[in-house]
Simulated assay, not measured.
Amino acid sequence: MTIQKKLFLFFMLALFASSPFFSASKTFRFGSNIITSIFDENLYPGDPVFLKLLVESPFIKNEINARVEIIENKTGKRIRSAKMYNLEEGNINPTTKILFVGLPLSTYLNPGSYTMQVDFQSNALSEILFIPFSLKEKTFVKETILLDPVNTAIKTDDSPQRMAQIDNLNAVLNTINLKAKKTIEAFMQPVHSTRRTSFFGDRRTFAYSNGKSETNLHFGIDFGVPIGTEIFACASGKVLMSEMRNSTGWTIVIEHFPGLYSLYYHLDKMLVKKGDFVQKGDLIGLSGKTGLATGPHLHWEMRLLAEAVNPDYFVERFDLFK
């Protein structure tokens, strides 16, 4: 591990150890209608932003339509939007509706103040809510990875087979299945090891064996573990992919709630198949060195609305919304 990576890891561990994580709330009252918002007001580029609304009203009878849009306050730029969905599991109060949504925040966003603008529509209420949050500054690691001829060939492969694999994965990650299991709990790391060889959001330059190079963003976390290390489901969900891919080797993708997926790359052996339901902590495979890999490791990734987001958020902070 380079000195830069060691310093980065030390900084991140110190940050998590010294920063307590609390959800914020803001209440809106419109006559006898009360909307309580639950959100995380301090985030970093690359984190997901989640919003939970508790809607108390004796008058709302039909489905609520609510759409959230992220706006950068300084520029007025509209970043991303998504429709909220009903989160009814465990709700026994007939006069309370629960809405939920998550949106990805790019690692390239500027630190500063942002607003979630909620367009709320129902048979009894039509309002626009404004919910503030801030992005703190974050430094991402820059690294150069030297690829031998074998890995260079994998990384630069533009064969119809690999293009079809990319299209197939993107089709899965772009799916928002509102009937999917909705898992809101503290996630776990997929391995017991804490040895990380690459981090989420690393700015990577791949130096090819032919003298050329290419710069990419690292979408997940790499755990440097020996071949055959046990890999566990980071949370409960449904296996939507379990197959060999040219670049990521033996690959598993698990759906955790509408639009949220965990990905596990470079496995040596898979112990689940497409269509299986798993619980948090279930053994799903063994780590390996398949696909594009310079050494044995597990690549663990989280995708929200098809965009890569910081996996650590789900371990450290996601249970704020239970």
Rank of each mutant, 00 (worst) to 15 (best):
E89N: 08
E72I: 00
S81G: 03
A24T: 10
F28Y: 11
G46T: 12
P45C: 12
Y44H: 06
E63C: 02
L15A: 13
F22A: 15
E56T: 12
K26C: 06
K77C: 02
G76K: 06
I64M: 09
P45H: 00
V55Y: 01
G31T: 08
F16D: 10
G90W: 09
T75P: 10
N91Y: 14
I70K: 01
I35S: 01
P58H: 14
L13M: 13
T96H: 05
I60D: 05
L54R: 04
I64S: 03
N65R: 11
E89Y: 11
Y44N: 07
I70Q: 02
D47M: 09
S32P: 04
S23L: 11
F50K: 00
T96R: 15
K61L: 08
G31F: 08
K26G: 01
F50I: 11
T95V: 15
K74D: 13
L87K: 02
L87Y: 14
V55T: 02
V55R: 03
K74M: 08
M84K: 00
S23Y: 01
L43R: 07
N42P: 08
K74E: 15
L87S: 08
K83Y: 07
Y44C: 03
N65M: 10
F59N: 14
N93F: 13
F16R: 12
S32G: 10
S19A: 08
N86W: 12
G46W: 01
I64A: 03
E72P: 03
S57A: 13
I60R: 03
L13F: 04
L54A: 05
F30Y: 13
F16Y: 14
N73R: 02
A14R: 13
F50S: 06
A82D: 11
I34H: 02
E89V: 11
N93V: 15
V49W: 00
E56V: 08
N73W: 03
P58Q: 14
A82C: 09
I60Y: 04
V68G: 00
F16C: 02
I79W: 01
T75R: 06
K61V: 06
N91M: 10
S18G: 10
L51C: 05
T75D: 10
F59L: 09
N73A: 02
M12C: 08
